[in-house]
């Protein structure tokens, strides 16, 4: 069971504003989905290595070489708000990254 309070907390972590009614709705929906997910607890996987890469690939590198940057017009052309060459946002307060 995922409570409305938990739903609000998750929505905040994911930075999505939700209304009270939506929280109610999500609480029901997520609860039923997680009920299905609980099925996995039937399995004892204590001896199983978690999967990392499906084909077991490892050590993929590139050499330390520089390639040209994106043209500044291309960097900024999709931006909702700029100031000079900066991206602009409303002022950041201390708690904003919480």
């Amino acid at each position: 069971m995922i409570s409305k309070e938990e739903v609000f907390k998750i929505a905040h972590l994911a930075r999505m504003a939700i209304t009270d009614a939506q929280a109610e709705h999500f609480s029901k929906e997520l609860s039923s989905i997680f009920e299905h997910i609980q099925k996995l607890n039937e399995l004892d996987v204590s001896d199983v290595e978690p999967m990392t890469h499906v084909h077991g690939v490892f050590n993929v590198f590139r050499e330390d070489q520089v390639e040209p940057s994106l043209e500044i017009q291309e960097v900024l052309k999709n931006a909702p708000d700029v100031n000079g060459q900066f991206f602009r946002v409303p002022i950041i307060k201390d708690h904003d990254s919480e």
Binding site: Q65, E67, S69, V75, L76, Q85, F86
Partner: peptide, 22 residues
């Protein structure tokens, strides 16, 4: 290093704002 950790964009100092991005 000359380039960034996950992309070949340059790490030099002293370039214009947002000019060392890809």
């Amino acid at each position: 290093t000359c380039s960034k950790i996950f992309t070949p964009s340059s790490t030099e100092f002293g370039h214009g704002v947002n000019e060392l991005t890809d």
